[in-house]
Amino acid sequence: MNNFESKLKHALQAENSVPDADTFISGLHTERKSRQSARRQFYNGIAAGMFILSLGLFTASQLGTDSAELMVYDTYEILDEDDRTEEEFLTEMAVYFLEESDDIWATVAFLDETEFLESLSEENL
């Protein structure tokens, strides 16, 4: 065993040149400062991310309702708006037909055929 161990140690005897201490120390401090700066940038990035996230959460919390409710609410608003526009359009068209027609009863019959009066009365209900 001892012979084997001495062979092991002999195999490892390397003649290496130790790097110049002053150059090594200078490189060490340069690397340290560079890593310190990278670490600082990383923490700043995290802090900025946290700030943006908290700002986003705060803004969302100020809306009072969740996003799903907001979407449904907006959809109803749009539908109501559409109904009002259609009603105004139909009323204006009916008045126009009545004013422009020579035979008012024929116009009423026409409006009756198109079921305009029924739809107008349903909306008024």
Binding site: N16, A21, I25, L28
Partner: peptide, 9 residues
């Protein structure tokens, strides 16, 4: 560092 560099290296 100067003292322990040779051994560590």
């Amino acid at each position: 560092v100067r003292r322990h560099l040779p051994n560590t290296f």
